[in-house]
Simulated scan of single mutants.
Amino acid sequence: MQEIFAGLPWWVKWVAVPAIALVVFGGLIVSVAGFVIALLFKVLVFAALVGGLIYVVRKFMNSSSS
């Protein structure tokens, strides 16, 4: 890979190639990032709902046993 970029200016390596990669793979990157963010949000909602259910059940069990 180094042989390919050996005679080229620095801006080709550090500006042009990443810009082309963003143009070509930008939609894929955005869709993967959106999927990961949606998955994390669903995990947080699930954890909150399970925690709330455990809290309500324990509160109900403690008040009915007293």
Results as ranks from 00 to 15, higher is better:
49 L>Y: 04
39 L>E: 06
49 L>A: 14
14 W>R: 14
25 F>Y: 12
19 A>W: 13
10 W>P: 06
48 A>H: 05
20 I>K: 14
60 F>S: 11
39 L>W: 07
6 A>F: 11
5 F>L: 15
36 V>F: 02
2 Q>M: 14
7 G>D: 10
63 S>N: 09
24 V>H: 00
20 I>C: 12
34 G>V: 05
27 G>M: 03
24 V>I: 11
33 A>E: 04
12 V>A: 06
65 S>N: 11
59 K>E: 09
59 K>F: 11
1 M>L: 13
4 I>K: 12
46 F>D: 11
65 S>E: 06
8 L>M: 15
8 L>I: 04
30 V>H: 05
62 N>V: 10
52 G>I: 03
41 F>D: 14
9 P>D: 00
57 V>Y: 02
30 V>C: 05
25 F>T: 05
7 G>Y: 04
8 L>P: 01
16 A>Q: 13
18 P>M: 09
8 L>F: 10
56 V>G: 02
24 V>E: 00
58 R>A: 10
32 V>T: 04
50 V>M: 05
21 A>Y: 12
30 V>G: 00
20 I>H: 04
2 Q>C: 10
44 L>E: 12
65 S>C: 08
37 I>L: 11
16 A>G: 03
65 S>T: 14
35 F>S: 07
48 A>F: 09
48 A>L: 15
28 L>A: 12
34 G>E: 08
64 S>A: 13
37 I>R: 12
9 P>Y: 01
47 A>I: 13
19 A>N: 14
25 F>M: 08
18 P>V: 08
58 R>G: 01
31 S>F: 03
3 E>G: 13
55 Y>M: 05
26 G>N: 03
60 F>D: 07
2 Q>P: 03
26 G>T: 03
15 V>F: 14
32 V>K: 06
1 M>C: 07
64 S>P: 01
64 S>L: 13
2 Q>V: 14
28 L>I: 13
12 V>P: 01
10 W>T: 13
21 A>D: 05
27 G>P: 01
1 M>Y: 08
34 G>T: 09
21 A>G: 07
62 N>Y: 07
36 V>H: 00
32 V>L: 09
21 A>H: 09
17 V>A: 11
3 E>T: 14
51 G>W: 00
3 E>S: 15
1 M>T: 08
17 V>I: 15
43 V>Q: 04
60 F>C: 07
61 M>C: 05
36 V>I: 15
45 V>S: 03
44 L>Q: 12
61 M>V: 15
50 V>R: 04
6 A>M: 13
61 M>L: 13
36 V>E: 04
43 V>G: 02
24 V>M: 03
9 P>Q: 05
51 G>A: 07
47 A>G: 02
18 P>A: 06
29 I>K: 02
36 V>Y: 00
55 Y>P: 00
65 S>Y: 06
18 P>S: 06
